[in-house]
């Protein structure tokens, strides 16, 4: 049904989206916690910076990533010399691009769920002998789980759709950085590419829809388990 090139694009997209979700969780949860609970100078600026990619043309973060992480860029050179890593024109660069673009979508629901937790539950935990870290791990984090799950799925879905920053930062190399949206774009540019483009478009719509439905269903189940909702 799919040609090898189409299947390749699909598999690459899944790989990039998966790693975007996994590597985004830790910084996403940390940022969400800082923005929800932290009191520090420059918080408004950090908040704006995290959300900036949502309102910028995606080509802008893509170009800035290229400047920073390209072969000549300071971060790129450092990564190359220290770890032998090369992000530009490599699929790992596509992960970074979609991470930057997806971070606001990951942070927002997690932050909201941190804000919604009754802080007296954390006080109760402290008064039962649990230190700040244990309280975070056994009370705060489990209670924020529905938000974290939603954030992870949104980051995954956003990564599946990421186009502008990716093509600017890591190019459109078949088998390396040509994810689903880039493949669709490439087919549309080719004469006679409508049929494969349509197949990939349908797959994109199906995947995005499935991710959102799954996120809804999982959240409802988790909220029931956590005691936020009744059995209804």
């Amino acid at each position: 049904m799919l040609t090898p090139a189409e299947a390749e694009a699909l598999a690459l997209s899944a790989k990039v989206a998966f790693w975007c979700m996994v590597t985004g969780l830790l910084p996403g949860v940390a940022l969400a916690w800082l923005l929800a609970r932290g009191r520090f100078p420059g918080k408004a600026l950090l908040d704006a910076l995290v959300h900036l990619p949502m309102v910028l043309p995606p080509v802008v973060p893509g170009y800035l990533l290229l400047l920073a992480f390209g072969r000549q860029g300071p971060a790129g050179q450092w990564l190359n010399e220290t770890f032998g890593l090369n992000l530009s024109f490599h699929w790992t660069g596509a992960v970074l691009a979609s991470l930057v673009m997806g971070l606001p979508l990951l942070v927002q629901p997690v932050r909201l769920s941190f804000q919604l937790i009754d802080s007296r539950l954390e006080q109760a935990s402290r008064s039962l002998g649990a230190g700040p870290w244990r309280t975070f791990l056994t009370i705060t984090l489990p209670l924020a789980a529905p938000g974290i799950l939603v954030g992870a799925i949104l980051a995954f879905s956003r990564s599946l759709g990421e186009f502008g920053a990716t093509i600017t930062f890591v190019g459109n190399i078949a088998g390396e950085t040509r994810t689903l949206p880039l493949a669709i774009y490439s087919y549309i540019q080719q004469p006679g590419g409508e049929a494969p483009a349509w197949r990939l478009i349908l797959i994109s719509v199906g995947l995005a829809l499935a991710a959102l439905l799954a996120s809804n269903a999982l959240t409802r189940r988790l909220q029931r388990q956590l005691g936020y909702r009744d059995h209804a």
Partner: peptide, 20 residues
């Protein structure tokens, strides 16, 4: 001394049981 080192028990108005 932080609360977890004071060994003082606290019962809140609505119990504040951990819902999860």
């Amino acid at each position: 001394l932080p609360p977890e080192q004071r060994r003082i028990g606290l019962v809140f108005q609505d119990g504040c049981l951990f819902p999860h």
